[in-house]
Amino acid sequence: MWSIGETARKLGVAVSALRYWDERGVVAPAARKSGNRFYGEDELHCLAVAKMLQDTGLLSLEEITTIVRGPVDGDSWRTAVNARLAAIHAQQQRLATAEAFLNHFLRCPNEDPVAGCPHLRKDTEAMLGSIT
């Protein structure tokens, strides 16, 4: 068993974060002795998974809680994972589109691609329909 301070150091988080996660139901300590929280191996594992998910910057604490708690709530963890994956895939598509546009701007021989690139003009006309 590890104290909350030891656990926080192992995870690289503040003690207050572990208290908050406990209050929010992410991971409860294995034991409380004299008002102090203590964590076992299983709790450390779950906390480490929660920290790894949080470090991605893509999941809410609610989603992390649902995932870490696992089958306690039926398949809700799977629903949360599938929803987040769908959002990530959509974000990847938007990023790929942005990357393609920005790379085109850099490769375009025209000094002012927005004003003078015929390829970009063709793309905007396709998007807007004929403006003439």
Rank of each mutant, 00 (worst) to 15 (best):
7 T>E: 01
21 W>G: 00
58 L>W: 15
107 R>D: 07
76 S>P: 08
97 T>W: 05
75 D>V: 15
114 V>C: 03
99 E>F: 05
42 D>K: 09
87 A>T: 13
76 S>C: 13
85 L>Q: 13
51 K>H: 12
10 K>N: 09
53 L>P: 01
17 A>G: 04
17 A>L: 11
11 L>H: 05
15 V>S: 01
36 N>G: 07
88 I>T: 07
128 L>R: 03
88 I>Q: 10
125 E>S: 10
32 R>C: 09
113 P>N: 02
109 P>T: 04
83 A>T: 11
90 A>E: 14
73 D>G: 11
107 R>L: 06
126 A>Q: 08
51 K>M: 08
130 S>T: 13
18 L>R: 00
11 L>N: 06
48 A>L: 11
85 L>P: 03
19 R>S: 04
104 H>L: 05
82 N>Q: 14
118 P>Q: 12
111 E>G: 06
97 T>A: 12
7 T>G: 02
132 T>P: 08
43 E>L: 03
69 R>S: 08
21 W>Y: 12
65 T>E: 04
80 A>H: 05
77 W>H: 13
85 L>E: 10
76 S>Y: 09
131 I>E: 12
55 D>Y: 06
131 I>K: 10
119 H>L: 13
97 T>G: 12
43 E>P: 01
39 Y>G: 00
99 E>R: 12
63 E>W: 07
122 K>A: 14
60 S>G: 08
66 T>V: 10
124 T>N: 04
8 A>Y: 04
34 S>N: 14
127 M>L: 14
105 F>D: 00
16 S>A: 14
89 H>A: 14
82 N>C: 12
9 R>D: 12
61 L>H: 02
22 D>E: 11
128 L>S: 05
10 K>W: 10
129 G>S: 02
35 G>K: 09
122 K>P: 07
67 I>H: 00
62 E>C: 11
1 M>L: 10
15 V>H: 02
45 H>S: 09
